[in-house]
Simulated assay, not measured.
Amino acid sequence: MILDILLILAGFAALIYGATKLVDAASSLAAKMGVPSIVIGLTIVAFGTSAPELVVNVFAAVSGSTQMVLGNVLGSNIFNVLAILGISSIIYPLTVKTNTTWIEIPLSLLAAICVFVIGADYLLDGQENLISRSDAITLLLFFLIFLVYNLFTAKSGAGEEEIVTEEYSTGKAVLFIVFGLAGLIVGGRLIVTSAVSIAEVIGISERIIGLTVVSIGTSLPELATSIIAVRKKNVDIAIGNVVGSNIFNIFFILGVSGTVMPLTIDENAFFDITVNIVAGLLLFLFVFTGKGRQLERWEGIVLLGSYIAYLMYLVI
C-alpha cells in the first residue's frame, strides 16, 4: 500500500507537470502561428486546466472503474465550490461579474441538475441508473453551446484578459507537447491503477477514492490558480476559473467519459449528486447576500466548513 501511495503521488506530479508543459508549449506554438490571445485562452488554456480530470476519467472508464469516473467529476466540482471558493473568499472577498452571476453560475447549477436528471433512470423510468452514450452526447452538445457562448463573449470584448504565453522555439514547443502528453498518459494511468489498488486494500469503494483523493489531486491546478489570482486581487479570474471548470467537468469531461463507456450510477452516488446541486445553489444565493454581488469572508467560512463536514461524512 505504501508503494501505491507513492505511485499515486508520482502520478499527480506527472499529470500536473504534463498538463502545464502541454499548455505552455501549445500556447507558444499557437501564438507563433498568429492565433489571437483570447482564442488561446478559451481553447488551449481552458482544456489544459481540465486535462488532469479528463485523462484520469478516460483511463478509469476504459478500465471499467465507472464509479471513480463519476466520483472524480462530482468530487472535483464540490471541492471547487466549497473548498477553493471558500478558501479564496476567506483570503479576499470575491466580486462577481454580471455575466458570471446571471449566465455562468446558473449554467453550472444547470449542469449539476442535468447529472441528476440523466442519471435517475430508476426514479423516472423504472430502469437501471445509467449515464448512457446518448446521455453523454447530450452533455457534449451542452458543452458546444457553452463554447459558442464563450466565443461570442470574447468577440464582444467582455473577456479581454491578455494571455501570457511562454516563448519557445518551434522545435522546443513540439518536444514539450510530446513530453506533456506523455506526462498526462503516464500520470493518469498511475493514478487510476494505484487508486483502485488502494481502494481494494482499505476495503472502501472506488466512489469514495474518486470523491476524495483523486478529485482533490486533479483539482490542485485550479486551487493554485485561484489562490495566486486572489493574492494578486484578480478576483474575476479566481471565480471564473472555478465556475468554468465546473461546467467543463460535467458537460465535457463527463460527456467524453460516458461516450467512451456508459456509466452505471451507484445508489449512494445520488447523495454526492445532491451535494453538488446544493453547492451550486449556495454559490448562487451567496452572490446576492451581503454587500452587492460578492462572496464575503463569512460566506467563504460557511462554504469551507460545509466541505469539511462533507468529507467527515464520507469518512464516517
Rank of each mutant, 00 (worst) to 15 (best):
T98C: 01
N276D: 13
I105D: 06
G86L: 08
I198Y: 09
Y313I: 11
R207M: 14
E166N: 13
S226N: 13
G119V: 13
L285E: 06
L220N: 05
I44S: 04
A60W: 11
V56I: 11
A10W: 05
Q294G: 00
A111L: 12
G41E: 14
Q294A: 08
L123C: 04
A229C: 08
I239C: 00
R297P: 06
F286A: 00
A269H: 04
Q67R: 09
G71E: 06
I185Y: 14
S245E: 02
V23N: 00
A10T: 11
I316G: 14
K233P: 01
A269Y: 07
A269P: 02
I316S: 15
G159N: 15
M261G: 02
L85K: 07
N77E: 10
L151A: 12
I202Y: 13
T95Y: 14
L109W: 14
T259R: 01
G180Y: 11
V243C: 00
A279G: 08
I216L: 14
S205W: 11
N57K: 04
G126M: 10
K291G: 02
F146I: 09
T100S: 07
I277C: 09
L211P: 00
K155N: 12
V62P: 06
V178K: 03
T274G: 09
N268W: 00
T170P: 03
S76P: 02
C114R: 01
I253E: 03
E166Q: 13
L29Y: 10
K291Q: 14
S245M: 03
L109M: 14
F271T: 09
F143S: 02
L211D: 05
V117Q: 06
S89A: 11
M312Y: 14
L151R: 12
N80L: 11
V81K: 05
L263K: 00
D125I: 08
I103G: 01
S197Q: 13
I40N: 09
V315T: 15
S50A: 15
S197V: 03
D4S: 14
I84T: 04
G280L: 08
L139T: 03
G41N: 12
L144F: 13
M261S: 13
N234L: 08
L54N: 09
E296A: 03
R189L: 00
L283V: 11
S28V: 09
G280M: 09
G86F: 01
A25R: 01
S205Q: 14
R293E: 11
L144E: 04
G180F: 12
K155T: 12
I5C: 06
E128L: 12
L223Y: 11
I191E: 05
I239G: 00
